[in-house]
Amino acid sequence: MKCEKVPLKGWRELPEGGTITEPGSSVLFDASAWRTSKPIIDQNKCTKCGLCWIFCPEGAIKVNPDGRYEVEFMYCKGCGICDKACAVRAIRMEEEEK
């Protein structure tokens, strides 16, 4: 999964009529501005059960090669479902930009 912010194109460069010509464009979609709070995973409490990964509606939880669960903030909308799903309360929601 590539996850990088791409520079936004000007109106002349965009395909006519809002057409999307390549598949998989949602990967490029930056939803981070939608958040009002962000999940913080306490790696000491986390049991790596994968509940947050299962419940996240955006697929914003990724598993690192070392087995740790982390949030991909470009896709996280801050809905807090991971926080509610976590069985050991290893996730807390922290308000964005107080």
């Binding site: 936004l8 194109k9 000007g10 109106w11 965009l14 395909p15 006519e16 009529g17 809002g18 057409t19 999307i20 010509t21 598949p23 464009s25 979609f29 930056d30």
Partner: peptide, 30 residues
């Protein structure tokens, strides 16, 4: 040009979030 057929694949009628709507609308204005 740029029309739907079994040989071409693209999406039309898509969501244009605030990052894109203005540019898309301006194309029609232009």
């Amino acid at each position: 040009v740029n029309r739907l057929s079994p040989k071409t694949s693209f999406s039309v009628g898509v969501v244009g979030p605030p990052e894109y709507y203005f540019e898309m609308k301006y194309q029609a204005i232009d």
